[in-house]
Amino acid sequence: MTTTSWNHKDLLGIQDLTVDEINCLLDTATAFKQVGERAVKKVPSLRGKTMVNLFIEPSTRTRTSFELAAKRLSADVINITTSASSIVKGETLKDTALNLQALNTDIIVIRHSAAGAPHFLSRLLKASVINAGDGAHEHPTQALLDAFTIREKKGHIAGLNVTILGDILYSRVARSNIWLLTKLGAHVTLAGPSTLVPRVFEEFGCRVTHDIDEAIRDADVINLLRIQHERQRMTMFPSIGEYAAMFGLNKERFARTKPDAMIMHPGPINRGIEIDSEIADCGRSVILEQVTNGLAVRMAVLFLCAGGKHSPEGAE
Protein backbone atom coordinates (compact mmCIF):
# COMPACT_ATOMS: atom_id res chain seq x y z
CA MET A 1 0.00 0.00 0.00
CA THR A 2 1.32 3.42 -0.86
CA THR A 3 0.48 6.42 1.24
CA THR A 4 3.17 8.60 -0.22
CA SER A 5 0.71 10.39 -2.52
CA TRP A 6 -1.27 11.77 0.39
CA ASN A 7 -0.15 14.77 2.41
CA HIS A 8 -3.35 16.60 3.33
CA LYS A 9 -4.82 16.98 6.79
CA ASP A 10 -8.26 17.68 5.35
CA LEU A 11 -10.59 16.16 2.80
CA LEU A 12 -12.76 19.05 1.67
CA GLY A 13 -13.72 17.94 -1.81
CA ILE A 14 -12.75 16.00 -4.89
CA GLN A 15 -12.30 19.00 -7.16
CA ASP A 16 -8.87 19.87 -5.81
CA LEU A 17 -7.49 16.29 -5.71
CA THR A 18 -5.07 14.84 -8.22
CA VAL A 19 -5.58 11.49 -9.93
CA ASP A 20 -2.73 10.08 -7.81
CA GLU A 21 -4.40 11.24 -4.62
CA ILE A 22 -7.72 9.71 -5.63
CA ASN A 23 -6.04 6.41 -6.49
CA CYS A 24 -4.15 6.50 -3.21
CA LEU A 25 -7.46 6.83 -1.32
CA LEU A 26 -9.05 4.04 -3.33
CA ASP A 27 -6.07 1.71 -2.90
CA THR A 28 -5.98 2.34 0.84
CA ALA A 29 -9.71 1.61 0.97
CA THR A 30 -9.10 -1.76 -0.73
CA ALA A 31 -6.79 -2.74 2.11
CA PHE A 32 -9.31 -1.60 4.72
CA LYS A 33 -12.14 -3.48 3.05
CA GLN A 34 -10.26 -6.70 3.83
CA VAL A 35 -10.08 -5.66 7.48
CA GLY A 36 -13.86 -5.41 7.52
CA GLU A 37 -14.16 -9.00 6.33
CA ARG A 38 -12.13 -10.45 9.20
CA ALA A 39 -13.56 -11.95 12.40
CA VAL A 40 -11.87 -9.15 14.37
CA LYS A 41 -12.69 -6.01 12.47
CA LYS A 42 -10.75 -3.54 14.59
CA VAL A 43 -7.23 -2.18 14.04
CA PRO A 44 -5.27 0.14 16.33
CA SER A 45 -4.35 2.69 13.62
CA LEU A 46 -6.00 5.72 15.27
CA ARG A 47 -5.78 4.62 18.89
CA GLY A 48 -5.61 7.68 21.13
CA LYS A 49 -7.12 9.96 18.48
CA THR A 50 -10.45 11.70 18.96
CA MET A 51 -12.97 12.22 16.19
CA VAL A 52 -16.07 14.39 16.40
CA ASN A 53 -18.99 13.83 14.07
CA LEU A 54 -20.41 17.36 13.75
CA PHE A 55 -23.65 16.84 11.87
CA ILE A 56 -25.55 20.06 11.36
CA GLU A 57 -27.94 18.40 8.91
CA PRO A 58 -29.73 15.05 9.20
CA SER A 59 -27.96 11.85 8.11
CA THR A 60 -28.25 8.12 8.75
CA ARG A 61 -25.78 6.42 6.44
CA THR A 62 -22.91 8.85 6.44
CA ARG A 63 -22.86 9.56 10.17
CA THR A 64 -23.09 5.87 11.08
CA SER A 65 -20.47 5.00 8.51
CA PHE A 66 -17.98 7.58 9.80
CA GLU A 67 -18.63 6.55 13.40
CA LEU A 68 -18.09 2.89 12.65
CA ALA A 69 -15.03 3.66 10.51
CA ALA A 70 -13.44 5.59 13.37
CA LYS A 71 -14.29 2.88 15.91
CA ARG A 72 -12.76 0.18 13.71
CA LEU A 73 -9.62 2.31 13.64
CA SER A 74 -9.75 2.47 17.49
CA ALA A 75 -10.38 6.23 17.63
CA ASP A 76 -12.65 7.74 20.28
CA VAL A 77 -15.83 9.13 18.74
CA ILE A 78 -18.22 11.85 19.81
CA ASN A 79 -21.43 12.56 17.87
CA ILE A 80 -22.95 16.02 17.83
CA THR A 81 -26.24 16.78 16.15
CA THR A 82 -27.72 20.26 15.81
CA SER A 83 -30.78 19.68 17.93
CA ALA A 84 -28.64 18.54 20.87
CA SER A 85 -25.96 21.23 20.55
CA SER A 86 -25.45 24.85 21.52
CA ILE A 87 -26.04 25.83 17.90
CA VAL A 88 -29.72 25.97 18.81
CA LYS A 89 -28.72 28.52 21.49
CA GLY A 90 -27.18 30.72 18.81
CA GLU A 91 -23.54 29.65 19.01
CA THR A 92 -21.74 30.20 15.71
CA LEU A 93 -20.08 27.38 13.81
CA LYS A 94 -16.73 29.06 14.43
CA ASP A 95 -17.20 29.06 18.19
CA THR A 96 -18.53 25.50 18.20
CA ALA A 97 -15.50 24.32 16.25
CA LEU A 98 -12.98 26.23 18.36
CA ASN A 99 -14.53 24.70 21.49
CA LEU A 100 -14.21 21.24 20.02
CA GLN A 101 -10.60 21.96 19.15
CA ALA A 102 -9.99 23.17 22.70
CA LEU A 103 -10.82 19.61 23.77
CA ASN A 104 -7.87 18.45 21.63
CA THR A 105 -10.03 16.87 18.98
CA ASP A 106 -7.95 15.43 16.16
CA ILE A 107 -10.58 15.04 13.46
CA ILE A 108 -13.81 16.91 12.83
CA VAL A 109 -16.20 15.32 10.36
CA ILE A 110 -18.72 17.93 9.30
CA ARG A 111 -22.08 17.66 7.53
CA HIS A 112 -23.66 21.06 6.92
CA SER A 113 -26.49 22.56 4.87
CA ALA A 114 -24.25 25.47 3.80
CA ALA A 115 -21.80 24.98 0.93
CA GLY A 116 -18.24 25.81 1.94
CA ALA A 117 -18.75 25.27 5.69
CA PRO A 118 -15.91 22.67 5.83
CA HIS A 119 -13.59 25.05 3.93
CA PHE A 120 -14.41 27.78 6.42
CA LEU A 121 -13.57 25.44 9.32
CA SER A 122 -10.38 24.18 7.73
CA ARG A 123 -9.01 27.73 7.71
CA LEU A 124 -9.75 28.07 11.44
CA LEU A 125 -8.63 24.72 12.81
CA LYS A 126 -5.48 22.71 13.27
CA ALA A 127 -7.60 19.56 13.47
CA SER A 128 -8.32 17.53 10.34
CA VAL A 129 -11.57 18.56 8.70
CA ILE A 130 -13.44 15.93 6.71
CA ASN A 131 -16.34 17.01 4.54
CA ALA A 132 -19.29 14.68 5.01
CA GLY A 133 -21.47 16.76 2.69
CA ASP A 134 -21.75 20.56 2.42
CA GLY A 135 -24.96 21.92 0.98
CA ALA A 136 -25.10 21.37 -2.77
CA HIS A 137 -21.32 21.53 -3.08
CA GLU A 138 -19.44 18.27 -2.42
CA HIS A 139 -19.76 14.90 -0.75
CA PRO A 140 -16.28 13.55 -1.40
CA THR A 141 -16.53 10.25 0.49
CA GLN A 142 -19.70 9.38 -1.44
CA ALA A 143 -17.92 9.91 -4.77
CA LEU A 144 -14.97 7.86 -3.54
CA LEU A 145 -17.18 4.97 -2.47
CA ASP A 146 -19.03 5.16 -5.77
CA ALA A 147 -15.73 5.02 -7.67
CA PHE A 148 -14.51 2.22 -5.42
CA THR A 149 -17.67 0.23 -6.21
CA ILE A 150 -17.41 0.85 -9.95
CA ARG A 151 -13.75 -0.11 -10.00
CA GLU A 152 -14.44 -3.25 -7.98
CA LYS A 153 -17.31 -4.36 -10.22
CA LYS A 154 -16.09 -3.20 -13.62
CA GLY A 155 -12.35 -3.48 -13.06
CA HIS A 156 -11.67 0.05 -14.27
CA ILE A 157 -13.22 3.51 -14.55
CA ALA A 158 -11.54 5.07 -17.58
CA GLY A 159 -13.67 4.77 -20.72
CA LEU A 160 -16.89 3.78 -18.95
CA ASN A 161 -20.15 5.55 -19.75
CA VAL A 162 -21.59 6.78 -16.46
CA THR A 163 -25.01 8.40 -16.44
CA ILE A 164 -26.05 10.42 -13.42
CA LEU A 165 -29.79 10.89 -13.46
CA GLY A 166 -31.95 13.27 -11.47
CA ASP A 167 -31.59 16.43 -9.47
CA ILE A 168 -28.10 17.54 -10.44
CA LEU A 169 -28.46 21.24 -9.58
CA TYR A 170 -28.95 20.69 -5.86
CA SER A 171 -26.83 17.55 -5.55
CA ARG A 172 -23.44 17.47 -3.85
CA VAL A 173 -23.18 13.79 -4.79
CA ALA A 174 -23.44 14.74 -8.46
CA ARG A 175 -20.73 17.38 -8.21
CA SER A 176 -18.24 15.17 -6.40
CA ASN A 177 -18.95 12.35 -8.84
CA ILE A 178 -18.49 14.67 -11.81
CA TRP A 179 -15.05 15.81 -10.61
CA LEU A 180 -13.92 12.31 -9.72
CA LEU A 181 -15.20 10.42 -12.76
CA THR A 182 -13.98 12.98 -15.29
CA LYS A 183 -10.54 13.04 -13.63
CA LEU A 184 -10.37 9.24 -13.91
CA GLY A 185 -11.42 9.26 -17.56
CA ALA A 186 -15.07 8.15 -17.52
CA HIS A 187 -17.61 9.63 -19.96
CA VAL A 188 -20.16 11.35 -17.75
CA THR A 189 -23.71 12.05 -18.91
CA LEU A 190 -26.06 14.11 -16.78
CA ALA A 191 -29.77 13.68 -17.36
CA GLY A 192 -32.98 15.06 -15.92
CA PRO A 193 -35.34 17.99 -16.36
CA SER A 194 -33.79 21.13 -17.88
CA THR A 195 -34.49 23.11 -14.72
CA LEU A 196 -32.48 20.69 -12.57
CA VAL A 197 -29.80 19.82 -15.15
CA PRO A 198 -28.78 23.18 -16.59
CA ARG A 199 -26.43 23.39 -19.57
CA VAL A 200 -23.78 25.11 -17.46
CA PHE A 201 -22.70 21.64 -16.31
CA GLU A 202 -21.28 21.04 -19.79
CA GLU A 203 -18.51 23.43 -18.70
CA PHE A 204 -17.35 20.73 -16.29
CA GLY A 205 -16.68 18.18 -19.02
CA CYS A 206 -20.04 16.40 -18.91
CA ARG A 207 -22.66 15.69 -21.53
CA VAL A 208 -26.08 17.11 -20.64
CA THR A 209 -29.31 15.62 -21.98
CA HIS A 210 -32.97 15.80 -21.10
CA ASP A 211 -33.87 12.59 -22.93
CA ILE A 212 -33.67 9.85 -20.35
CA ASP A 213 -33.98 6.98 -22.83
CA GLU A 214 -31.03 8.26 -24.78
CA ALA A 215 -29.10 8.93 -21.57
CA ILE A 216 -29.33 5.36 -20.28
CA ARG A 217 -29.11 3.42 -23.57
CA ASP A 218 -25.32 3.13 -23.68
CA ALA A 219 -24.63 3.53 -19.98
CA ASP A 220 -22.35 1.08 -18.17
CA VAL A 221 -23.30 2.65 -14.87
CA ILE A 222 -26.52 4.45 -13.96
CA ASN A 223 -26.34 6.50 -10.78
CA LEU A 224 -29.75 7.71 -9.62
CA LEU A 225 -30.20 10.73 -7.40
CA ARG A 226 -33.21 11.57 -5.34
CA ILE A 227 -35.08 14.86 -5.56
CA GLN A 228 -33.60 17.12 -2.88
CA HIS A 229 -36.80 18.38 -1.28
CA GLU A 230 -34.87 20.30 1.37
CA ARG A 231 -32.87 22.35 -1.15
CA GLN A 232 -35.56 22.59 -3.81
CA ARG A 233 -37.23 25.77 -4.94
CA MET A 234 -40.88 25.06 -5.63
CA THR A 235 -40.81 26.04 -9.30
CA MET A 236 -38.45 23.45 -10.77
CA PHE A 237 -40.93 20.84 -12.04
CA PRO A 238 -44.68 20.34 -11.94
CA SER A 239 -45.04 17.42 -9.56
CA ILE A 240 -43.38 14.32 -8.17
CA GLY A 241 -45.82 12.30 -10.28
CA GLU A 242 -44.71 13.98 -13.50
CA TYR A 243 -41.08 13.61 -12.49
CA ALA A 244 -41.52 9.88 -11.91
CA ALA A 245 -43.30 9.47 -15.24
CA MET A 246 -40.81 11.50 -17.26
CA PHE A 247 -37.52 10.70 -15.55
CA GLY A 248 -37.95 7.77 -13.16
CA LEU A 249 -36.13 4.52 -13.90
CA ASN A 250 -39.11 2.22 -14.44
CA LYS A 251 -39.12 -1.39 -15.67
CA GLU A 252 -39.78 -0.44 -19.28
CA ARG A 253 -36.76 1.84 -19.42
CA PHE A 254 -34.65 -0.59 -17.42
CA ALA A 255 -35.35 -3.29 -20.03
CA ARG A 256 -33.70 -1.11 -22.67
CA THR A 257 -30.43 -0.61 -20.78
CA LYS A 258 -27.29 -2.62 -21.53
CA PRO A 259 -27.52 -6.09 -19.94
CA ASP A 260 -24.58 -5.39 -17.67
CA ALA A 261 -25.54 -1.81 -16.78
CA MET A 262 -25.03 -1.36 -13.07
CA ILE A 263 -27.56 0.52 -10.93
CA MET A 264 -26.29 2.79 -8.16
CA HIS A 265 -27.96 5.14 -5.70
CA PRO A 266 -26.37 7.11 -2.85
CA GLY A 267 -29.53 6.80 -0.72
CA PRO A 268 -31.85 7.59 0.76
CA ILE A 269 -34.05 6.01 -1.92
CA ASN A 270 -37.48 7.35 -2.71
CA ARG A 271 -38.98 4.15 -4.08
CA GLY A 272 -41.39 4.64 -6.93
CA ILE A 273 -40.10 8.14 -7.73
CA GLU A 274 -36.58 8.11 -9.17
CA ILE A 275 -36.38 4.33 -9.13
CA ASP A 276 -38.85 1.47 -9.41
CA SER A 277 -38.86 -0.47 -6.17
CA GLU A 278 -38.02 -3.81 -7.78
CA ILE A 279 -35.11 -2.37 -9.73
CA ALA A 280 -33.61 -1.06 -6.50
CA ASP A 281 -33.56 -4.62 -5.19
CA CYS A 282 -32.55 -6.42 -8.39
CA GLY A 283 -29.31 -8.24 -9.12
CA ARG A 284 -27.81 -5.37 -11.05
CA SER A 285 -28.31 -2.97 -8.15
CA VAL A 286 -25.23 -2.41 -6.00
CA ILE A 287 -26.91 0.00 -3.62
CA LEU A 288 -26.11 -1.95 -0.44
CA GLU A 289 -22.59 -2.81 -1.58
CA GLN A 290 -22.05 0.93 -1.90
CA VAL A 291 -22.85 1.20 1.80
CA THR A 292 -20.38 -1.57 2.67
CA ASN A 293 -17.69 0.05 0.58
CA GLY A 294 -18.42 3.40 2.17
CA LEU A 295 -17.09 2.07 5.45
CA ALA A 296 -13.77 1.02 3.88
CA VAL A 297 -13.45 4.33 2.05
CA ARG A 298 -14.07 6.33 5.22
CA MET A 299 -11.55 4.27 7.16
CA ALA A 300 -9.03 5.09 4.45
CA VAL A 301 -9.89 8.79 4.55
CA LEU A 302 -9.61 9.02 8.33
CA PHE A 303 -6.43 6.96 8.33
CA LEU A 304 -4.70 9.12 5.71
CA CYS A 305 -5.88 12.52 6.94
CA ALA A 306 -5.09 11.80 10.58
CA GLY A 307 -1.70 10.38 9.69
CA GLY A 308 -2.37 6.92 11.13
CA LYS A 309 0.81 5.13 12.14
CA HIS A 310 0.03 1.51 11.32
CA SER A 311 -0.93 0.29 7.92
CA PRO A 312 -3.88 -2.11 7.85
CA GLU A 313 -1.55 -5.03 7.05
CA GLY A 314 0.74 -4.23 9.93
CA ALA A 315 -2.20 -4.18 12.32
CA GLU A 316 -2.63 -7.96 12.33
Binding site: A136, H137, L169, P198, V200, F201, E203
Partner: peptide, 18 residues
Amino acid sequence: VADGVMNEGHWSAALGLR
Protein backbone atom coordinates in the same frame (compact mmCIF):
# COMPACT_ATOMS: atom_id res chain seq x y z
CA VAL B 1 -33.44 36.10 -7.05
CA ALA B 2 -35.13 34.17 -4.22
CA ASP B 3 -32.40 33.11 -1.79
CA GLY B 4 -29.47 33.50 -4.20
CA VAL B 5 -26.12 34.35 -2.64
CA MET B 6 -23.80 34.71 -5.66
CA ASN B 7 -24.01 35.22 -9.40
CA GLU B 8 -25.84 32.39 -11.15
CA GLY B 9 -23.51 30.72 -13.61
CA HIS B 10 -20.36 28.63 -13.84
CA TRP B 11 -19.13 29.33 -10.33
CA SER B 12 -22.46 28.98 -8.52
CA ALA B 13 -22.83 25.61 -10.25
CA ALA B 14 -19.31 24.55 -9.27
CA LEU B 15 -19.53 25.80 -5.70
CA GLY B 16 -23.06 24.56 -5.01
CA LEU B 17 -24.17 28.05 -3.97
CA ARG B 18 -27.62 29.32 -4.89
